[in-house]
Nucleic acid binder design. Structure first.
Length: 314
DNA sequence: AAGTCGACCAACCGCCCGGGG
DNA sequence: GCCCCGGGCGGTTGGTCGACT
């Protein structure tokens, strides 16, 4: 009955990885590359489930993993992205170079959720006094986080999807031509710059007056966040490819343009995410006035909002 | 010093999706 | 169209360790 397990658990090691196992896995991947996770343990001589190997590599052994505390900037970014995306840890992680979804998820669950919950509760008559230490006072991570820096207004989060259900199809009317050449764009720069921009835009971003969709942090803000930072330096297409590879998903869904069709654009989550960057690419590479964005580096926020509102209506 | 509690986080689990046959 | 497989994702668990009493 039930689902067939991904592998036989018999005779397999479980729990924490030993240094020896790590070494074996690293050596194997360095030689053979990633993929074929199910076969990997057998071929590499590891007594581990393939999924376990994959997780170990992605969350711990990858060379581009950034170790250390989450910075205040990263924390702000996580909060805002979570507001926008909900528990889409992989997407959020995609915006934080070197951070893994697991790490962000853990960080959120142990620090930020309580922090924000505390904020909410503190402004809602503090009904739960029985729950001591709820407001981050004794949270261990206070040593590394910056709760004082979170001066968020206590308000319910508005996310597009709070439930972790994959959105595989999003139809966006053919306002944008995603078939345009993708060049001179470095997503890595986009990511890093975008991140800081998002933070900087925190307080002065023009939030929409429209109900619902664009309240608080919204798609247009995310777009703006990217767009505002699209003017720096010339960037290479292979940079984009590189970050796609590092970002696991976007190369498949976006760089190939699989999901992007003009006049009725279909896109996956990954494509949706990368769409923001593609919008940026569009703006940068074409510099045409045919779409709602001004060809200046400073884009018209209202245009962006209207664009998405129209999309929503459609 | 010893016991208890709670936070942290690596690892696991189960579900879902896309691709291929 | 259906089924299987590989891979990805989010939720949850459990071991470890530090803080507190």
């Amino acid at each position: 009955m039930g689902r067939k397990p991904c592998c036989s658990k018999e005779g397999l090691n479980r729990g924490p990885w030993s240094a020896q196992e790590d070494k074996i896995l690293i050596n194997y991947i360095q030689i053979h590359g990633q993929g074929k996770w199910r076969d990997l343990p057998h071929k590499a001589g590891l007594k581990r489930c393939g999924k376990s190997c994959r997780l170990r590599w992605l969350n711990y052994l990858r060379p581009d993993i950034k170790r250390g505390d989450i910075s205040a900037e990263e924390e702000q970014l996580i909060i805002r992205l979570h507001k926008l995306l909900g528990n889409r840890w992989a997407l959020i992680a995609g915006r934080l170079p070197g951070r893994t979804d697991n790490e962000i998820k853990n960080y959120w669950n142990t620090n930020l959720s309580k922090k924000l919950e505390g904020d909410d509760k503190s402004t809602s008559m503090q009904l739960h006094k029985s729950k001591k230490k709820i407001n981050g006072c004794s949270i261990k991570s206070s040593k590394k986080s910056s709760s004082e820096e979170i001066n968020k207004p206590a308000e319910p989060h508005r996310v597009f999807r709070t439930k972790a259900v994959r959105c595989t199809k999003v139809v966006i009317p053919g306002l944008l031509d995603f078939n345009q050449t993708v060049d001179n764009v470095g997503a890595e720069n986009v990511v890093s710059q975008s991140s800081s921009a998002l933070i900087q835009e925190d307080n002065n971003s023009a939030t929409s007056d429209h109900d619902g969709l664009l309240m608080d942090l919204d798609i247009s803000e995310l777009l703006l966040w990217d767009a505002l930072n699209s003017s720096s330096g010339s960037l290479q297409a292979n940079d984009y490819h590189q970050i796609n590879e590092n970002g696991d998903h976007r190369d498949r869904n976006v760089a190939n343009g699989d999901h992007l069709h003009h006049h009725g654009l279909e896109c996956s989550d990954f494509a949706l995410e990368a769409m923001f960057e593609d919008l940026l690419m569009d703006e940068r590479t074409t510099r045409l006035g045919d779409h709602p964005f001004q060809h200046n580096d400073m884009m018209d926020l209202k245009s962006l909002e209207l664009y998405f509102l129209n999309s929503e209506d459609d």
